[in-house]
């Protein structure tokens, strides 16, 4: 799937891009390849969608997004793509995933909203419910963040 070199690149880039004027030259030197070769390989990882982006991930608890509501919806299979598109169209929805159900747990579509206030989340959920016409759902507000990290691949 990934070449040995690509795995090494993933391992390094997941730990962060060095904060020095020529970060790719620094990483390339560690990998024993040229800067141009590294940049081409990174571009290729991005083109294939292996790397979504090279950028900053923020600690959102510290920038004012304290209320996080996950809503689990029970959507008839035949309506799934349509309802998912309606929910994904809400700019307040940051994630919209279809998931397998489990015994005793019939919910199959999950949306996440991060807002400064709980009441704002509830108002958005009500609009979503009305827009999609889905009445069977569970609101799951977060009460504590016990862990939030980025995955470190190829380190296990």
């Amino acid at each position: 799937m990934l070449t040995d070199l690509e795995r090494e690149i993933v391992k390094r880039l997941q730990d962060g891009l060095p904060l020095v004027p020529e970060p790719f030259a620094a990483l390339a030197a560690e990998l024993g390849i040229g800067e141009e070769e590294l940049l081409a390989a990174v571009e290729d990882l991005q083109r294939r969608g292996v790397m979504r982006r090279l950028g900053a991930a923020l600690q959102h608890l510290r920038v004012g997004y304290t209320a996080n509501a996950m809503v689990a919806w029970r959507v008839p299979d035949a309506r799934m793509p349509e309802v998912a598109a309606v929910f994904a169209g809400f700019h307040e929805v940051t994630h919209c995933y279809e998931r397998k159900t489990a015994p005793g747990w019939p919910y199959n579509l999950y949306t996440v909203i991060h807002r400064p206030e709980r009441n704002e989340c509830l108002a958005i959920i009500e609009r979503m419910q009305q827009a999609a016409g889905i009445d069977d759902y569970v609101v799951l507000f977060s009460t504590a963040e016990l862990k939030r990290t980025s995955m470190r691949y190829f380190c296990d």
Binding site: Q14, L19, L45, V50, M51, R52, A57, M151, Y153
Partner: peptide
């Protein structure tokens, strides 16, 4: 730019500055 990024990283506002990967395409 470098000084501001360093400061925000040290303060924990930037959790990570690097590659963000698609776990399935990475093979996970």
């Amino acid at each position: 730019v470098l000084a501001r990024l360093k400061r925000m990283k040290e303060a924990g506002i930037i959790r990570r500055l690097g590659g963000i990967f698609d776990s399935r395409k990475v093979g996970y």
